[in-house]
C-alpha cells in the first residue's frame, strides 16, 4: 500500500498515542480528551488506521530480555542461487521474527526471539546445520533510547 491519505487528526492521534496509552477505566475517553475529540471518534479512527495497515498494532511493545527471553540480530551471506530456498529454511523457525533481504555481501538479516536466552544459540545452530551457511550473531549490547515521535 502506498501512502494512504492521513489527515491532520490521524497524524495527531498517531503522534500522541506513540507516547503511551492511559491506564484507567475509560482510556479511550481519556486519550480522546487530550486530543480534543470524543471517545467514539478516536475508536473509529484507530479502527480505520489499523484496517488500512498504517498501524501494525495497537497495544504493548514487549522487552524480550525483561520478559526473560532471548533476542538477537542475525546476518547471513547467502549465495544468490540459493536465496529463496534459504529464506524458506530460515522462516520455517517460529523463533524468527523479522527477516529482510538487504543489499550487502551479508544479504539476509533476521531477528531471533526465544522464550529463554539459551535457546538463541540452539536456533542459530539449527539454521547453520540446515543451510550449511554461517550465521553471524549480533546481540544488542546497549540500546539508546529515542525521544519518541513520528513525523506522520
Amino acid at each position: 500500500m502506498i501512502g494512504p491519505e492521513l489527515d491532520a487528526l490521524d497524524r495527531r492521534i498517531i503522534n500522541r498515542l506513540q507516547e503511551g496509552f492511559p491506564l484507567c477505566e475509560h482510556p479511550y475517553r481519556a486519550a480522546a480528551e487530550g486530543l480534543g475529540i470524543d471517545e467514539a471518534t478516536l475508536i473509529a479512527r484507530l479502527e480505520r488506521l489499523l484496517e488500512a495497515g498504517v498501524l501494525s498494532r495497537f497495544g504493548p511493545l514487549y522487552n524480550a530480555e525483561a520478559m526473560g527471553g532471548g533476542l538477537t540480530l542475525c546476518a547471513m551471506q547467502v549465495p544468490e542461487a540459493r536465496f529463496d530456498e534459504v529464506v524458506e529454511q530460515v522462516n520455517r523457525h517460529p523463533e524468527v521474527a523479522h527477516n529482510y533481504a538487504r543489499d550487502h555481501a551479508l544479504n539476509l538479516w533476521f531477528v531471533v526471539a526465544t522464550e529463554r536466552p539459551d535457546q538463541v544459540a540452539e536456533v542459530i545452530g539449527r539454521i547453520e546445520a540446515e543451510t550449511g551457511l554461517a550465521v553471524l550473531d549480533l546481540p544488542k549490547l546497549r540500546e539508546f533510547h529515542l525521544s519518541l515521535r513520528f513525523e506522520a
Binding site: 496509552f21 491506564l23 484507567c24 498504517v54 495497537f58 497495544g59 522487552n63 519518541l148 513520528f150
Partner: peptide
Amino acid sequence: IERIRRLQAAGAIKRFGVVVNHRALGFR
C-alpha cells in the same frame, strides 16, 4: 490495569500504544 502498570514499571512492556507501519505510511 495494575498488572499492566507493574509490567511497564518493570520494563517488560517498553511502550504501550500505537505501532506504526512505516512502509504503509509511504516511508518506503
